[in-house]
């Protein structure tokens, strides 16, 4: 059964239509990599899935939580959007850790505020998650005291703390120095192996080859083609895909 279902998703900024009717179905434990040139709408698609951008039109269902877009911003609808967000982890390019909280406090924040978990339980959970991303010894460090790669791993742990049904990554390694990219990708790979459903916007081709069950190529607000990484990288059907790949390679 599909865990994410997107129908006819459209998003316009003023007169500029960035997403021109996206249909997308993602099954449980699937790892989907979205690629495409800048301005193709891949980040906007991801942000729409979490309602960080309000879609102009379309329906988004994640698990059993469905939000029809374009409705009035009343409290019932706000609650629907919050319920949907609670079940999706979002990892930002710029990490967006809370700088005034330590690593472990960053991870504890969600369980305490969103799930009402007791502080001591949240601490045990957070400690376990930080250990899982290889930062068990950095619990009491502030974000400013961590490297970019470490910050991004804390951010992943922070999202995992809410036990999401799906993880969304918006160019998670684009702000990192090259030597720090690997440690973040390794954490994402480990999650893939555990069966976490993930959508990843990235330019890391070798990573996509490694973990992606499906690669989606987007351009100018539409999905141009999709398939296994082999199908897309080795024998792309569309001219636009070929052009993009020749530049990226």
């Amino acid at each position: 059964m599909s865990i994410i279902q997107v129908n006819n998703l459209r998003k316009s900024f003023g007169t500029n239509e960035v997403l021109k009717g996206i249909d997308l179905t993602i099954t449980k434990s699937e790892v989907v990599v979205i690629m495409g040139p800048s301005g193709s709408g891949k980040s906007t698609l991801l942000r729409c899935l979490n309602f960080l951008e309000e879609p102009t039109e379309g329906v988004i269902r994640i698990g059993e939580f469905q939000v029809v877009t374009g409705g009035k911003a009343n409290s019932k609808r706000k609650k629907e959007i919050r319920e949907l967000r609670k079940r999706t982890g979002f990892v930002f390019q710029s990490f967006n850790l809370f700088p005034h909280k330590t690593a472990i406090e960053n991870v504890m924040e969600g369980p305490i505020i969103i799930h009402g978990t007791k502080v001591e339980e949240a601490r045990i959970l957070a400690k376990a998650l930080l250990t899982k991303v290889g930062l068990g010894d950095r619990c009491d460090y502030y974000p400013a005291q961590l490297s970019g790669g470490q910050q991004q791993r804390v951010a992943i742990a922070r999202s995992l703390a809410l036990n999401p049904m799906v993880m969304l990554y918006d160019e998670p390694t684009s702000a990192l120095d090259p030597e720090l990219v690997k440690e973040v990708l390794q954490v994402i790979k480990d999650l893939a192996r555990e069966g976490m459903t993930m959508i990843i916007v990235t330019h890391e081709m070798s990573f996509a080859k490694d973990v992606a069950d499906r690669v989606i190529f987007m351009d100018k607000g539409v999905i141009v083609e999709q398939g296994t990484s082999e199908e897309i990288f080795l024998k792309p059907k569309e001219e636009r895909t070929r052009q993009f790949l020749s530049i990226v390679k």
Partner: peptide
């Protein structure tokens, strides 16, 4: 603005985000 986005993306309400994340900073 990323601070507000990170808070909202977790499922916080606007006022929770303001109180816990934005105002202390």
């Amino acid at each position: 603005n990323g601070q507000m986005e990170a808070s909202l993306s977790m499922g916080m309400t606007y006022s929770q985000a303001l109180r816990r994340i934005i105002l202390p900073q």
